[in-house]
């Protein structure tokens, strides 16, 4: 198997626990590797991470490249980028994927700069295809599809002439699909070597709050937009979510207006969700928002503007004032449940 066809995923871990986005990327990477007829490998950097490495086999990695040291316990730019940069330089994988998290967006560009690789941020779709660019045919290129210009256009980016193609993908965009039976993968350990630059940046304190909001796992989501008008009116969104046993969410405009906290933002710069039911109240439905919810099983849109773009992605559209429709909906629901 040629090394040039390898697909690598940087596995992000915090305190020995892998980030979900890394498994989502392994799931996608597995399909890309199949098309390239290459191997899927996971790169795991940290301290005491053999469990994380073993978990990667559930998602199809055939090998985990592991670098362990006490100084690697927490993510630090200088150390992680040096290790990953050197590994990529030496092994020349065809594709390297990162989560578009704070860590991924700090690490990937530094590694791409060091290896002089192309890097595309926040891809919403990745495909392998043969492309003709400037009259030259490039077999098996990675098509990196991402929104641009504030989501008004979708661009397909390619890296035709570079050996290594890199991309970051936001959490929740790719679907996580574990294998029925884990791969009998191998763990390859690489030695850690200290460097004079290691301590240029030191972590003095860390505050980490486990995200209490788990929108991704919620079967029902009730989301409000700027059209709700005020923080007080937003209480109605909470009431409906309570009655239905769902989670509360908001559009970016609602978050910016302070109606709801950022952790509950759905959309391109928030969370991507696929609930059984998504109720959008007073949300106009800008592309950035739709990108985060359009794969919901059923979508109900409530908006007083009949031309709001949200009606183009919904299954049930209610033209009306959310302040009046929501109480009616709650009543109807309670009545039918009896």
């Amino acid at each position: 198997m040629s090394k040039q066809h390898e697909v690598w995923v940087f596995i992000e871990q915090r305190d020995g626990k892998a980030a979900e986005v890394s498994f989502e990327l392994l799931s996608k990477g597995r399909k890309l590797a199949e098309q390239l007829k290459g191997a899927l490998k996971a790169v795991v950097i940290g301290e005491k991470i053999s469990d994380v490495a073993a978990e990667c086999f559930k998602f199809g990695a055939i090998e985990a490249l592991v670098i362990e040291d006490t100084s690697l316990k927490h993510y630090r730019t200088m150390l992680y980028s040096r290790i990953l940069g050197n590994l990529i330089q030496e092994h020349q994988p065809r594709i390297v994927l990162f989560g578009a998290t704070v860590i991924g967006r700090d690490l990937a560009p530094r590694v791409a700069s060091f290896t002089k690789s192309g890097l595309t941020a926040d891809c919403t779709e990745l495909k392998i295809d043969t492309i003709t660019y400037l009259r030259k045919e490039y077999p098996d290129l990675l098509l990196q599809i991402r929104p641009a210009f504030g989501g008004n256009i979708v661009a397909t980016i390619i890296t035709p002439d570079n050996p290594v193609q890199m991309a970051t993908v936001r959490e929740g965009v790719m679907e996580m699909s574990p294998l029925a039976k884990p791969v009998n993968g191998k763990i390859t350990k690489f030695p850690f070597q200290k460097d004079a630059t290691d301590d240029l940046v030191k972590i003095i304190e860390r505050h980490h709050e486990e995200n209490k909001v788990n929108l991704k796992a919620a079967p029902i989501i009730v989301a409000g937009g700027y059209g709700m008008g005020s923080k007080e009116n937003f209480a109605l969104i909470r009431e409906l979510a309570d009655v239905l046993g769902g989670e509360v969410a908001g559009s970016r405009a609602a978050v910016d207006a302070g109606f709801v906290e950022h952790a509950r933002q759905v959309g391109q710069t928030g969370v991507t969700v696929r609930p059984k039911l998504y109720i959008a109240c007073g949300i106009s439905g800008a592309i950035q928002h739709r990108a985060g919810m359009q794969d919901a099983n059923k979508i109900i849109a409530i908006n007083n503007d009949p031309d709001a773009p949200i009606f183009d992605v919904c299954h049930y559209g209610i033209v009306g004032d959310a302040m009046q429709v929501i109480p009616m909906f709650i009543e109807a629901y309670k009545h039918k449940l009896k």
């Binding site: 929104p147 661009a155 980016i157 299954h315």
Partner: peptide, 28 residues
């Protein structure tokens, strides 16, 4: 190293939704 291969305007999917009247009966 990165090149723009293609740029597309975002096209909204055809609107095939069911319209529900904002009334108690219809919501029921």
């Amino acid at each position: 190293p990165t090149k723009v291969h293609k740029v597309e305007s975002v096209v909204l999917g055809a609107s095939a939704h069911e319209t529900i009247e904002p009334s108690k009966e219809a919501l029921g």
